[in-house]
Simulated scan of single mutants.
Amino acid sequence: MSSRGPYRRHTAQFKLQLCSDIRSGALGRRDAQKKYALSANLIQMWLTQFDRGELSTEEVEADAIAEYEAKIAALERKVGQLTMELELVKKTPRLRLVSDNERSSIITGPKPAPSGGGAK
């Protein structure tokens, strides 16, 4: 048996399409249960909503708009974060660890500065 989260959320578009298929006879209730791993009670609840007119194309459109607005907000937050990081990187002075005439190695790093004399 596959492990899934405690709750699954189905879009209004999926519910509307499933109910339309069941009511038109293109798909049986048991076939829908097996195909989509849904309970009979959940399908019955959706069919009741569909029959009452609570599942409509307006709801599907409103659901899609809400989903798009959430994605836009997330992308705007990400753009703001990246803009702030870029500004910080631009303002941070870069340290020069090695002079132009010195050579450095990834393993050993820059050569140590010569000392002014022995240890006293």
Rank of each mutant, 00 (worst) to 15 (best):
R4T: 15
G28H: 09
N41F: 06
G28D: 12
P6F: 06
T11R: 09
Q44W: 04
S56I: 04
N101D: 14
G28P: 06
A119F: 04
G5A: 15
G116C: 01
A119E: 08
R94G: 10
Q13R: 08
E85M: 14
E87S: 12
Q17F: 03
D100W: 09
M1V: 15
E102I: 02
F14E: 05
I65M: 13
G117D: 00
T92V: 00
G116I: 01
T48W: 03
V60Y: 00
K71E: 15
A62H: 05
K35T: 10
K71N: 11
P6M: 14
G118H: 01
D21H: 10
C19P: 02
A119I: 10
Y36R: 01
R30Q: 09
S105D: 11
E67C: 12
R96S: 08
Q17P: 01
S105H: 09
L18W: 02
L38P: 01
G25S: 07
G53V: 05
Q33T: 03
H10P: 00
I72C: 12
S115L: 07
P112S: 05
A66C: 10
G5M: 13
R8V: 11
E69A: 13
K91E: 05
F50C: 12
D63T: 07
F14M: 08
E54C: 07
R30G: 01
E76I: 02
T92R: 08
R30Y: 04
G5D: 12
I106A: 10
N41R: 10
T108Q: 11
E69N: 15
L95H: 09
P6H: 13
L38Y: 00
S3H: 13
E69G: 06
Y68K: 14
K34T: 08
V60L: 00
G80A: 15
N41Q: 12
N41I: 05
A73T: 13
D100L: 11
L95C: 01
W46Y: 05
T83G: 10
E102Q: 10
E87A: 15
F50T: 09
A73R: 14
A119P: 03
G118V: 01
R94E: 09
R77F: 04
Y7G: 08
T57A: 08
E76D: 14
L18C: 10
G5T: 14
N101R: 13
G25R: 07
L27A: 02
A37R: 05
A40S: 14
P93W: 00
G117V: 00
R23T: 14
E76N: 12
E85K: 15
A70D: 13
R96Y: 03
G109C: 02
S99V: 02
H10W: 13
S3Q: 14
W46A: 03
E61C: 02
K35I: 05
N101C: 12
E87T: 09
Y7I: 14
K91M: 07
N41C: 04
Q44E: 08
A32L: 04
L38H: 02
E69P: 04
G5S: 14
M1E: 15
F14P: 00
A64I: 11
G53F: 07
P112N: 02
Y68M: 14
R96H: 08
G109E: 09
A62E: 09
Q13W: 00
G53S: 07
